[in-house]
Amino acid sequence: MLVFFKSGWRDICAALKKYDLAGVLGWQDIRQRYRRSTLGPFWITISMGVLIVALGTIFGNLFGTPMKEFLPFLTLGLILWTFISTVLNEACTGFTVAESIIKQISLPLFTHILRVLWRNMVIFAHNIVIFPLVLLIFWLPLQPIALLFIPGFVLLMLNLSWMSLILGVFCSRFRDLAQIVGNLLQVFFYLTPIIWMPQLLPKRFNLLLLDTNPFFHLIEIVRAPLLGTSPSALNWQFGIVLALIGWSITIPFYGRFRSRIAYWL
């Protein structure tokens, strides 16, 4: 067990030391995707904006929540969810799409996961531009508590990175897992308060739909501060415990199977 932990840990540290390589590869992905369009990655921002306006009008009216309250909530929720679900979906193919590199050059394999994370953080940074615009439109202030989103985002990344790593390993062995993950994420999109506000839920559903849903807590620790409220103690605890448990399982697991990945591809 200790041997596996060490070998996993070593690879992860080596990848973090070579962070610039993951950076170069991640940027290349973005450059390559948007090279031939004039607006570049801002196309995603625009389509995200359109989606937010459309969903905002429909569901805001449907639920009868005031736009001033609903639209900022929906904006952050959708942007964060898009980020989370794209990271996890792309993590499934993180190793398989890097097959040619993995089979030619010896690199810490976690680099390929960092590449996925970094690429999506860059896209997230493009999308988040919409949020200040929404605040501006409704003339809402940004409270000082908003700064709490920084530790929140760090905690979210810590969790996403172990999930991505473990998914990447599993999916390079079992190729149909990527579809299953995609389906599950779709279900979670509806189960998690993204297009509906948690206040709308009858109290007795709270435990079932909110407290046990990891994605609710992970979104909440970033979203709540930006909306001017403090995330609950449970949100933080859940995030921290999940990161601790997740990493302590992932590292030895990764250490055990890391050397097999090149053979599975």
């Binding site: 590869l25 290349q28 031939r36 040619s100």
Partner: peptide, 19 residues
Amino acid sequence: IGMDGELTGIENIYLRGAL
């Protein structure tokens, strides 16, 4: 390995160099 058709020669030098 790792070179990319969409990127310019210079960009490929940095990419390949990093690899």
